[in-house]
């Protein structure tokens, strides 16, 4: 026993190094899975407020462009309203199932294989995990951690991101993932080889998951090829969103999510 203690005292620097290094390693490995990095993430109070302070300075640099984007979206929505003014839902059941919360991006990254965004809305604004995040152009990601005032988004530019999407024309669905290379291009897998594809076809969300409503634009087909076993396509999708340049986003809350969950539980 004495010798053991002596050994530790003699090599205490190395022991501390080993301890802290393995600590860092385990944090890294844990963070590679969806829903696991709860402790060290940028949605906590300290990091959130620091990013908030600096964001209030840096947002002035983009004001002109952001105004333009908002104006464009406004005019698009106005035309939608004008063209269907006298359409009222027949039944309360047909009324909207989704609430939208506008939010600002405090921190964005796109150069790593696993990217996350930090938003300025949290539990106090009734934001929870698994809510979807979109912009006026397309989808951004899914919320995976929240604190009282901030939340963290698992970006579609994350190698562990999986989103259910479909081809707008033919309604065939597949899973959108990212290979970690270009921030403009994501990969759509699991589309069967009997589906007719053409370059430029639009990809939209499928609505099969409770996170995103159906028919939110995602991207367009850039190129496609068959996989090794030649029964499924691997489609390169050019994203509509420029993920490198985001500022205003919307968080989608599915108001029927509890009902859907209850149904799923009763299935099992």
């Amino acid at each position: 026993m004495q010798q053991l203690f002596n050994f530790f005292i003699k090599n205490k620097t190395f022991v501390l190094f080993l301890l802290l290094f393995s600590c860092g390693l385990s944090l890294t490995i844990r963070s590679n899975g969806y829903h696991r990095s709860k402790f060290i993430n940028s949605s906590n109070q300290i990091t959130g407020s620091v990013y908030g302070t600096f964001h209030s300075i840096s947002q002035y640099f983009n004001l002109k462009k952001e105004n333009e984007i908002l104006l464009n979206e406004n005019s698009r929505l106005k035309t939608l309203v004008f063209s269907r003014e006298n359409l009222t839902p027949l039944d309360t059941l047909l009324e909207q199932k989704y609430d939208l919360f506008p939010s600002l991006i405090y921190k964005n990254s796109f150069a790593l294989p696993n990217n996350y965004l930090t938003l300025n809305k949290g539990q106090n604004d009734s934001i929870k995990e698994d809510y979807g995040v979109i912009t006026s152009k397309g989808i951004v990601g899914i919320i995976d951690a929240t604190s009282s005032n901030y939340s963290r988004v698992l970006s579609i530019l994350n190698t562990s991101s999986r989103i259910n999407v479909k081809l707008k024309k033919t309604n065939y669905f597949g899973i959108l993932s990212w290979d970690g290379k270009s921030p403009e291009i994501a990969q759509l897998k699991d589309v069967q080889d009997l589906v007719k594809l053409s370059i430029g076809d639009t990809i939209v969300t499928s609505g099969y998951s409770s996170t995103f409503p159906p028919n939110i634009p995602v991207g367009s087909i850039l190129s496609y090829a068959l996989n090794d076993t030649e029964d499924l396509y691997i489609i390169e999708v050019k994203l509509f969103n420029d993920m490198r340049n985001l500022e205003h986003v919307y968080i989608i809350k599915n108001t029927a999510i509890n009902e859907l969950r209850a149904l799923n539980i009763s299935d099992e």
Binding site: L20, F21, C23, G24, L25, S26, L27, T28, I29, R30, S31, N32, S37, I40, N41, S42, N44, I46, T47, V50, Y51, K107, S109, L112, N114, N115, Y116, T118, R152
Partner: peptide, 13 residues
Amino acid sequence: DMFLDSGGVHASA
């Protein structure tokens, strides 16, 4: 790491 959401990579290095 905490600010960049990168798990523990910077801490280890």
